[in-house]
């Protein structure tokens, strides 16, 4: 973890922020997270090798997230993946991905500073997110392992469901303070809509 990373994280004003008591869900800013962006042919064997080397998972299917021992792989678009790993693993992961993608038309970048990750836990996460995202978040439409990019509280986000009551939301770092404030307000106890 470099000093540069720590400085950028602190600059958002949300580093380590926890929203818990008096709220429907627990929201925690996940802190420094290694994020590697991969672009290229997702069906290629080189891409599969790169994803496995970094996260230990297969290439996620369309609109899916794969969680492995070393990290998560998220489907972002037909030619783009986002890999999330421990911050100390970002540099080594990037090198491993670049090595696996040697010689093919593809790109691997360390995007750790680009976005902030929020971890949302609780049975009412879908209820809270549905207040601001135009996505069908019902269990049958958004089962565990689903990933989706959309907008939440007016800004671009990525959200995915890692477990029944375990979700992650990412947004660009410059907007993280707004999203944290939005999540805090949208999850205040007593503000249940009761739709789900």
């Amino acid at each position: 973890m470099s000093e540069q990373h720590a400085g950028v994280s602190a600059a958002t004003g949300v580093a380590g922020r926890v929203i818990d008591r008096g709220h429907l869900v627990r929201v925690e800013e996940a802190g420094l997270t290694g994020m590697i962006g991969l672009r290229g042919d997702l069906s290629s064997s080189q891409m599969a090798k790169a994803v496995r080397a970094v996260t230990g998972t297969d290439v996620p299917g369309v609109l899916r997230v794969e969680a492995g021992k070393k990290g998560r792989a998220v489907w972002m678009s037909p030619d783009e993946l986002l890999l999330l790993v421990a911050p100390a693993e970002a540099t080594a992961g990037l090198a491993a991905a670049e090595a696996a993608l040697e010689g093919v038309h593809a790109m691997a970048l360390d995007l750790s500073d680009a976005r902030v990750v929020f971890r949302l836990k609780g049975g009412a996460v879908a209820e809270v997110l549905a207040k601001g995202a135009p996505v069908d978040l019902r269990e049958q439409a958004f089962p565990v392992g689903t990933a989706r990019r959309t907008h939440l509280g007016g800004i671009a986000v990525g959200l995915w469901r890692l477990g029944d009551e375990d979700w992650e939301v990412v947004c660009f770092r410059s907007l993280a303070h707004h999203l944290a404030d939005w999540l805090e307000q949208a999850s205040v106890s007593g503000s249940e809509v009761g739709h789900f």
């Binding site: 369309v62 609109l63 678009s77 135009p134």
Partner: peptide, 11 residues
Amino acid sequence: PCCGAECAETE
């Protein structure tokens, strides 16, 4: 048709 997501107009 690229990702299969049902998109509201705002997206």
